[in-house]
Amino acid sequence: MERASTKGVLGHLSLLETQMRSCRGKHQQLNRTEQLKAKVEALCVQKEQLKVELHTLQRLQKVRSTLDGNGADDEMDDDSENADILQLMAKCARLKDLLHAHHLIGGYDVVKTRQDKGLCITLTTAYEGIYLDTYHLEMDLSPKLRISRHDIPPFIPLNSLVETTTQTALRPFLDFLSQHLNAFTGRKQQLKLVKEQHKSVEVMESNVLCSVLVLLVRVPERKLPVLCILDYTDHSRSLPTGVKFECDDEPPNFEQWKKSCRILLERPVHKALITMKSLGCIV
C-alpha cells in the first residue's frame, strides 16, 4: 500500500491487478473442487446404476437357467419385487435364442404374410463352416400353391417342382431346393478357393451353374500342360461325377492319373489339388 501511494496511479493499478489475480486463482481452485465433486457424484451414480443392472442381469440369468432346466429348483420361489417381469423376460430371451439357433443350424426361416395366405421363406447356404448367400421365396398358399417372387437362380426348375408339391408337404420341396442351392454355392465357393489358393493352376473354363470346370495343371516332368476336366452332372452335389485328363503329348503316367482321378472325385477340388501337389502329381 505504501509503495502504491509512493508510486502513484500506476502503482495502484498494478496492486489491483495482483489482487485480482490472486482472487481469480482462489476462484479457479474453488471451481476445480466443484468440478471434481461433480465428477465423483457422476461416477457414484454410474456405479450404482451398473450395480443395479448387474444385479438384474444376475437375477435374470438365474431365472433363465431354471427355464433351461439346469438351474436349482429352489431358486424358483423368488417372490421378490418384479419377479413376474423377470420370468417373462427370461422366457422371451430363451425363445429368441432358440429361434436364433434354428437360424444357425440352417433352418428354413418362415414368416407368414397376408393373414396366413402367404409365406416368405429364407434359405441359408453354407460351405465348410462359412455362411454364404441366402435365397428367398415368396409363396401364395391359397387358393393354389404358387411362387409369386423369388431370387433362386433360373437353372433350378422351380415351377415344375412346385407342381408336385402340396401345402402339407412343403418340407420335401424345401429340402430338395436347399440341397441344390447348397451344392451350387459349394461349387462356387470351391472355384473361388481354387483361384485364391492355387496360383499355378489356371482356370480355363467354368459356367454360371459351376457344373463344368476345366483346369490347366502342369506335371512335374518338363512342366507339360494337362487339361483336367471336371464334370458335375449331379447338381445336387458339390463333388464331380466325372473327371477327365487331356494331354497333347504322350499319355502321362497312367497309374498316377488314375489316383488323381480318384482324389478329385472324392474331395472338394481345392483340397484335391493340395493332395495332388503333395503327391507330386502336379506342380
Binding site: D68, N70, L98, H100, A101, H102, G107
Partner: peptide, 12 residues
Amino acid sequence: QTQMNGIVLNGI
C-alpha cells in the same frame, strides 16, 4: 420353425 424344420431344439 420347429414344424418346418422337423427338428426340436431344447436349449442353447
